[in-house]
Design a protein around this nucleic acid. Structure first.
Lengths: 268, 268
DNA sequence: GTTTCCCGAG
DNA sequence: CTCGGGAAAC
């Protein structure tokens, strides 16, 4: 099957609901990983997604963070709790197996500033997620770690690498860690398919006309294991939601895979 | 000329802007008195009304209160300050002469509760407005005192006169004062033209389905001097804005006058 | 319920 | 700039 996956930091699912539903109808991803839903579980607009034809798994908290996974096919497995304090303490982690693929959706802490304890938390969150994956999966299973990773790995991933060097999101320590994580057996799919493109997924609201001036960052990623990398046919940023009225500060990243082409080592 | 006047407590002019502009295009009043604009002067959406073909006078304050007068014809005179502390202390009073008619727009304090100092302030505000009018005008000039007066004068002006007797807005003291003020030479135009109609202009947001159950109050009025009363051809409540999405808790009161029929004692 | 302000967070 | 939350007012 042709399988479409997407990640989208919506910055408030209630504020973004009209835009998000419109985008889902246009793109019809088989799986959509959402971050920063910013609502408690009871306030999640579940019905709207069911009406749109999706199964929904969500994990919210008051005010901040919160993640959700929408799937056209019912999820085969769901992991809501990892029993790791760093991953479970805030609503930032959700894993779902759908269409035979494990999808890990994370909203990695932004980090605030390199001196702030939040930066240590960010690094720990990245490490623990990688460890959790390592403990549970091998690099030869079809796995997609996606979401707002909040790290721009390379100079071409920020609008001004000189000025931003050392800033949170483009700090040597996180970039090094990001590469180290890839070393386990993950491919940065967008960069893999587009080695030279300068394409962003986030533009700060606070910079005037940041979209028009393209003052962006590539912070949202699809990290895939080798079998999925080989099954990939496309991975691109969809700019349209960021250009509409009342946008999120992020815009979706979308990938297409030929799951039939998947060569899995294990029998199941 | 046929002259249409309206009063509308918008409960936040920024939140109500789409509804208000739509309503202005449908009704095209020559003068529209707005209350509870709830914005500072710098935040008033002046341009939107100019584009809609209106001259605008407004007086706002932070957070609460605030009044505005829209006129199709340029105002001949404007009174923004009365030099009376009670009238000028909060943004509740604005007077404009347009098309030869003096229009006094007030947002009378709600009063909170009969024991609260705010209730005394309400009574004082009503008295001072009446005094200001008396000091400046005679009952034989065309004058319209309109706005959210926050008094339901008679039992037929509230949804449950028994239960509400003594409540703020339907307290004997304010009703008595309201009648006393009319005694100077003002006519409650809606009641004058519709002696037996039970028609409201306000329905509390907090009562579930208050509009459908018609749990309302008649708090918004057009008090006119005799010449205007004789020139009046119509005075009715326009329910449509209260029935649309995102309504104010009030709905407009609209009146039509034949100004040619005006017999003014003075020459100008 | 609804609006506005102020706050913390990004 | 924008979101959500809590307070105050009606």
């Amino acid at each position: 099957m042709v399988w479409k996956a997407a990640t989208f930091n919506v910055n408030g699912i209630r504020a973004r609901l009209p835009l998000l539903l419109e985008w889902l109808q246009e793109q019809r991803p088989h799986v959509a990983c959402l971050q920063e839903i910013k609502c408690q579980d009871k306030d999640f607009p579940h019905d709207a997604f069911v009406e749109a034809g999706y199964h929904v798994v969500w994990k919210g908290q008051k005010s901040f963070n919160g993640v959700a996974v929408l799937t056209t096919d019912p999820p085969q497995e769901v992991v809501r709790e990892t029993d790791r304090e760093v991953l479970d303490g805030e609503a930032r982690f959700l894993a779902v197996k759908t269409c035979g693929v494990w999808v890990i959706n994370t909203y990695v802490p932004q980090g605030r500033s390199p001196q702030d304890p939040a930066f240590g938390y960010k690094l720990a969150f990245l490490k623990e997620t990688a460890q959790w994956i390592d403990a549970r999966f091998a690099p030869d299973v079809p796995l997609l770690w996606t979401g707002d990773i909040n790290v721009a790995p390379d100079p071409q991933d920020v609008y001004d690498p000189q000025r931003l060097d050392g800033e949170v999101g483009f700090h040597p320590e996180e970039r090094r860690l990001f590469k180290e994580i890839l070393g386990w057996g993950l491919v940065d799919l967008f960069r893999h398919l587009h080695p030279d493109e300068k394409q962003f997924t986030f533009w700060d609201y606070r910079l005037p006309r940041s979209v028009q001036r393209n003052l962006g960052w590539r912070l949202d990623h699809m990290l895939v294991t080798e079998p999925l990398a080989q099954a990939a046919r496309d991975c691109r940023v969809d700019m349209t939601p960021r250009q509409k009225p009342k946008p999120s500060d992020h815009t979706p990243l979308v990938a297409v895979f030929h799951l039939d082409a998947l060569s899995v080592s294990s029998p199941g």
